[in-house]
């Protein structure tokens, strides 16, 4: 395994552990307000307060606690939404590419229609009717995200299903399910892994955007997106509020991309050096 993959694995594990167990272990409450302590700067600056190493926001809430607790929401939404979107996209793309004909035209036509439809309108309408919650948010992100994966999967399947090695499998008695799981699914795995790593970051950002519009995570529950947006109007005076979620978000996306790179190289034998 390459060094970058080890670093990415270790870093991702560390972040996952920190956001899961950090707040209870450190005895921090992300919701506790302390107005006299509001807008305290981080520890290296003058006026920093003991017990708030990363500073506080405009309501005096501890930023370390909020970033850790917010990470839990953001990562849950980001990973769940991108994983589900890829899973849906892979299934749809496999079926459309393998079956062809009217199934293909119907499904891909729906995909085109879907992309042409403005996501925000859908989000506002849906949340207006059923209300806002984490499952609703994830569902919306999956609905918005499956098309990319489906299109790429379908294109690869169209190409691979006609390859002679698939013909050889059919000639030895392989059924449809066997061809799909043994030959086609592994062939689309690498591309989908790349899509997945890119979409984790995007999903976290979109979640932040929706939360800013009041369509995502409900205040006071923190997420990296909501903390970023909380800090936007105070950027000139309390720049540390958006700094921390921005840093953790960037770091997470970077680590996930490194991980995806490494996994893709492991899955795709044709990039072996010892050819």
């Amino acid at each position: 395994m390459r060094t970058s993959v080890r670093i990415a694995l270790a870093g991702s594990a560390l972040i996952a552990l920190a956001v899961t167990f950090g707040p209870p272990l450190l005895g921090l409450d992300p919701l506790e307000q302390d107005l006299p302590a509001k807008l305290a700067p981080p520890f290296w600056m003058e006026g920093a307060l003991a017990g708030h190493p990363l500073g506080t926001d405009q309501l005096g809430r501890d930023l370390l606690a909020r970033v850790l607790a917010g990470g839990r929401t953001s990562l849950l939404v980001g990973f769940a939404a991108s994983s589900l979107a890829c899973a849906v996209g892979i299934v749809v793309g496999l079926l459309a590419g393998y079956l062809g004909g009217w199934v293909d035209r119907l499904v891909m036509g729906l995909g085109d229609l879907w992309i042409a439809f403005p996501f925000l309108v859908l989000a506002i309408a849906t949340i207006g009717v059923v209300g806002s919650s984490t499952p609703v948010l994830i569902t919306l992100l999956v609905l918005a995200g499956w098309v990319t994966s489906a299109r790429v999967t379908r294109a690869i399947v169209k190409q691979v299903r006609g390859e002679d090695y698939v013909m050889a499998a059919v000639g030895a008695g392989a059924g449809h399910l066997n061809v799909l799981t043994r030959h086609l699914l592994p062939a689309v795995a690498g591309a989908n892994l790349v899509i997945w790593t890119f979409s984790v970051g995007t999903m976290v950002l979109v979640e932040g955007g929706l939360s800013f519009l009041g369509l995502g995570v409900r205040p006071p529950t923190p997420s990296w997106g909501t903390i970023l947006n909380d800090g936007r109007e105070l950027l000139e005076t309390a720049w540390w509020i958006p700094l921390w979620p921005g840093l953790t978000l960037t770091l997470t996306v970077l680590l996930v991309n490194l991980l995806g790179d490494g996994l893709r190289d492991t899955l795709d034998v044709r990039t072996d050096d010892h050819a």
Binding site: E163, D164, G171, A172, G173, G175, V269
Partner: peptide, 26 residues
């Protein structure tokens, strides 16, 4: 049908033209 052919497949097999596409690269 594909299903009925399956038990008979062992008796006739195909060798392909281009061995670079007839073997799964993975």
């Amino acid at each position: 049908s594909r299903r009925r052919l399956r038990p008979l497949r062992p008796r006739f097999q195909l060798v392909f033209q281009d061995p670079s596409t007839s073997l799964n690269p993975r």
